[in-house]
Every structure is written in structure tokens, then in C-alpha cells.
Design a protein around this nucleic acid. Sequence first.
DNA 1: TTAGGGTGTGGAACCAGTTCCAAGGATTTT
DNA 2: AAAATCCTTGGAACTGGTTCCACACCCTAA
Lengths: 346, 346
Amino acid sequence: MEAVPRKTTIREVAQAASVGIGTISRVLNSSSQVSRETRARVLEAIRRLGFRPNAQARRILKRRAEMVCFLLSNRDFLHPFHARILQGVESYASGLKQHVLFAALHYSPRTPPDRIDLPPVLQEHGLIDGLILAGTIYPNLLRRIESINMPFVAFSNNVVGMGDEEQFDQVGFDDFNGTLHATRHLIGKGHRHIVFAADVSYPWLRRRFEGYRQAMRENKLKHVLITSRNPQSFVDFGQKSAGRILSRQPRPTAAVAGNDEIAYGLWRSLRRQGVKVPDDISLVGFDDREEAVLMDPPLSTVRVDKEEIGETCMKMLLERLHHPRMTFSQRILPTEFVIRGTVRQL
Amino acid sequence: MEAVPRKTTIREVAQAASVGIGTISRVLNSSSQVSRETRARVLEAIRRLGFRPNAQARRILKRRAEMVCFLLSNRDFLHPFHARILQGVESYASGLKQHVLFAALHYSPRTPPDRIDLPPVLQEHGLIDGLILAGTIYPNLLRRIESINMPFVAFSNNVVGMGDEEQFDQVGFDDFNGTLHATRHLIGKGHRHIVFAADVSYPWLRRRFEGYRQAMRENKLKHVLITSRNPQSFVDFGQKSAGRILSRQPRPTAAVAGNDEIAYGLWRSLRRQGVKVPDDISLVGFDDREEAVLMDPPLSTVRVDKEEIGETCMKMLLERLHHPRMTFSQRILPTEFVIRGTVRQL
DNA sequence: TTAGGGTGTGGAACCAGTTCCAAGGATTTT
DNA sequence: AAAATCCTTGGAACTGGTTCCACACCCTAA
């Protein structure tokens, strides 16, 4: 490897400006008082030499990397959903001169914690100050992270199999109230036979189901859960569910999908069978993905502000870094039902 | 801010193992020969003290951050397309113990280079070794990057307004041959009246248009470019183009869309007007986005391997870092036409 | 026995910053 | 006029690694 050209150092700047190295440092950190003339002379020397302070050296002393890691776990790819969270993290972070490192991890929920092979960032220390966990989170990963004493905040909607005794910082959105409001909206539009389509073995879909059930119960309506066998994907789940919905007697007038992908699958399959949305059946989704607007008609769905999730994660992580012994907190961000074109008045 | 607990240092480990600090370093870097017994004693001490070497300190000496920045410029959000490139970068990088920092930047093509406000990562030095530029790249940004002497590789398909004299490392995919093959495929299926829909003021769409034109020319067919006024987005562009396509005499039997979003808009608008794809008109896209498979019927399109782009960018950047004076190179990755359901045999 | 070579090891010097103490000079107080 | 205080400033010491030189030790050859 060829030698990297040496960069200007603080000592050379000090020489050039005929001051001591301490003064340069003081100017850089705009901290304690430096006389107007000295400061000007130093700044001029910095400009002239094109000096940019070395980040690593500062960090050793500061004991802060000013960097956090966004760790995406067990996702085959960086979905727009998580991409938006990442963006929320980044935009908030960069305003505070914090950097965001991106890393991915694949692990099995059954691997013992100490056998989980963490990404390189987490193997050295001092590289990052903390961690934002996104993607599916099983208890063994939490154990592993705790074992290296790395402060972290988890995006909690995809946390699986955690007991109530678990204590860690988390940010999530309100699954329950999301479907509660969506379902109430359908009921308000005169719908009585409303089904819910999702695989409720996922904790977050289970919570959404509970929100739907709550709305049905408070209106003394019967709840119906539609599932399908061996789906290849959520879209496929939706497609396979369509037939089951249509075969019910009496035929449901509306369906609440566990997420937008299921809603898409449903819509596509219904349309193929000549069933029109919303004329023949109303449909609502959850998540408000990009594709929701592109559906025809555009999908009424529960909006989740993904960037706000990211921003809140970052905010909470910084608080944790500043106050390591602060008690753990959990933030649930509200969701919003967005009315588009897939619900009709009965 | 509370004090961060001091971590174990190499000197403490040396003390514990009753060896010198140099020996610890040698063990850590598994470099020169250390006797079997000494190595075992050191490793035992490291384990017992839970020692993890400080990354920053090493980097000062090594003059390498082992970190690169993925800079997304002028994108309102991290599209799946770029997300996949990022993933390609990350997965290749992490295998080589390199880290990937994510940053975003918004700038105007008209801002003078020295006025472009770079993200914090690029303001200090030593934090990253190099840069991968994704998103729209105008000459002023290149000038700015060059001014801080930061090695970089650009994803070249979105480079705008660059003369031929521009020299920098770039990785892109083959716009021209993509549409060339797609159009040839349509011609092979018996189509003669084929239009191309896109705003060719984008250089990459212009290249795709040229590929289409080449295929038409070599078959002595007339090329037709469809554009539309003041589109809100690519999808909108597609929607607005549908009418223009249908009003042509004789009516085209196939359309090549500049990208999948335009294809989606076209498809949606055509369907609304009762025109069936592919029965009444065949359609091909470009990019092979996630949505392409979800369209009904799924879209025949030109696949671009985004992760390979990311991987190649990272590979090229590492080469550049190892050989700073190497001549600049440009890699064009091949594309592949994917046959799905939107083209019919005439 | 001595010279020569190879291996293993200790630790000073170094990297590029920050911190802090001491000290110089100016200004104010006594 | 002397003492006290404040504002600036210089630079040694420090951070936590790596590098390199010196040296001890062992083995072999002359």
C-alpha cells in the first residue's frame, strides 16, 4: 500500500501562526477566550495551509466517537420502510455533527448469545458510541449487545419473544390504535362485516389484530381473522386470502389488512376475480408504504412516520449516552389513518 | 455529560500477562512471531480482562480509517434502487473489515464548488478513507470533492453535464445495450410500431433512448419519442404519456418506457382507459425495481444488478486507496432483459 | 572459544490531537 | 506603589495504540 501523504498537523499550524499548539486547539474548539487578533491569525493560517483536524486523535481524548451504528438485522434487504428510518436517523444526527454507520447482520434466534457473530464495528471499541437496532430483534441478540456494554435503542415493533421484564430503550409506533382507528372508520362508513387478514404469529400483526378486535367488540360486531397457508410473502398471503374472504357468508363488505403488502395482494387478487375495490369491497392497509399511493385506487391506510421513528431513536440514544444511568424508556409514536380511495360509504 | 468508564488498555493487559506492550500489539495483529506460550498467556489475559482494542488509536498510526462514506446526493429519499447499492457496498465492505458510513447531501448544480456545504464527515480528516458517490452528480460537486483530496468512486449513471475530459473512477450499468436488447426483443416478437417514452433531457434516459433508436434503425423502423409536459413524477409522466401513445396513427403495438416508474404510470393509465397490457399493447420497462414483479401482469424489464454496482464501487475504491496514482477507470456493468408478462407475440 | 545468525521480547518514541498548569502581562483594587 | 485579579498564552503531559531498535538468548559454524 502506498504511503498516504502526511496531512498538515496542529503543530505546523501553530508554527505558521507563531502561536502555541494549545491556542490552535482552543480556536478549533471555539472554547475558552482567545483574543480577537490571535484567533484571526490562527484562522488565517488554517485556511492557508488547508488544515483539517484529524478526527481520530480528538476522539481518543474525548472518549467519544460521535458516531452511532444503524444495525439492520435479519432483513434480506433494506426496505423503504427501514430506509426511511435510517434517513430519519441520519438527518437528525448530521445536524448534531454525529455520524451514522450502516451495518447489517443475519442471525438465528436460536444461536446462543455468545455465539452471535457481530459485525466488525462492534468488535473493536471506541468506533461507535451506541447502536440503533432495526430489523427483527430476538432476545439472544439483546443479550449479546448487552454483553459488550454497548448502549442501544431498539425500534421496538419488530421485537419478538421478549418478556415484560426486559428493560431497554425502545421506540415504536402504535399498532393497536392504528387498526383501532382504521376499523372504526370502516364502521363509521356503515360497514358491519369486516374481516382482518394477517398472520398473527408476528407480534406486531397480533397487536394490529387486537386493535381491530377492540373496534369490533365496542360495536358489538363479530371479528373474523383470515389467514392462509404457507404464504411465500406478505403479498402472496394477501392473494391467497382473497378467496377465503369471498367465500364467506355473508360476504364481508370490508377487509383490514395487517399491512400494505397484504392489502396489495388482496387487491390484486380481488381485481383478477372481477371484484372491485372499493365498489364491491372496501380495503384498508397499514404502514403507508410508497406503493400505497400507486395502487389504483390509492390505498387508505395507517400512516407511520418512519423518519420520526429514526429521529426519535437517535434522540433517545444521545440521551442515553449523556446519562448512562437514566432509567430505560419506551416511546410509542402515534399513527394516523390516511383516507384515500379504497373505502366506500355503505 | 457523565464520564465514560475507562476501558482496559493494552498496558493493563501487558501488566496482567507479565509481558511488554509490544508483545500485546504483536499478538493483536497476529503478525511477527510470538512464542506459543507467550501468545497463549496474552490471549488468556485479553479474555479475562474483556479487552477490546481501541479503534481510534490504531487508526492514527495506521493512517487508515478503514471506513468509507456512502454519500447519497440530491435524493429526497433513499430509494430501493440506491438502498440496494448501499447494501452491495456494505456486504462487500464488511467482509474486508471495512466500515460504511451513510450520509446525505442536498446541493444545487449552480452553487460554486467552494460554497457547497459538505456533510460533517467530510469536514474533518482521517474519519473516512474514501467516498462512494451515489445520487445525482453535477460537475460542481466533483470539483468540491477533489478540492479536499478525497479519493472517490462515482456511480456514473446519474452523472450530469460532464465533459469527456472528466477523469474519475466510475461504475455504471449499460443503459444503451439495455434498451437495445429490450427493443430487439419486441421486434423479434413481431412488433413494428414501437414508441419510447421518457424525458430525454436526463442523460441516462437519453442513452436508453439511443439504444432503442439503434434497434429501430437496424431494422429500418421509425423511432417515435413520447414526452409529456410538466410531469409531477416519473409515474405521472407515464400516465400523461398514455394518451399521446393511444392517439397515434397507426396505433403503436408496443412501448419502451425509460424506466419502471414510467412503465407503471403508462400501465395504470392504459388500464383505466380499457387498454389491456399486453393484449392491446406490449410494454417494457427499465431498472427492475421491486414493483415490477408486483405489476399485473408482471413487467418485462431490463434488470440492473444494483448490489453488484455497490460491490464494484467498493472494490474500485479500495484499489484506488491502495494505488493512489493508478489511472482512472470506468466500469460498465451489463444489464439483462427479463421476460415476464407484458410482451406478447404479434 | 568466538563469531554469526535467527528468534523472541521490552519499551522508548511516536501519532495528532486535548488538557491543564504555570506564567506573563494588563488591569483593577487596596 | 504594591497586591490581587483577570485574561491570554505556551507547552509538557497525556490518550492508547504501533513501530522499531536494542538486547538477550539459543543454536550453529569456524
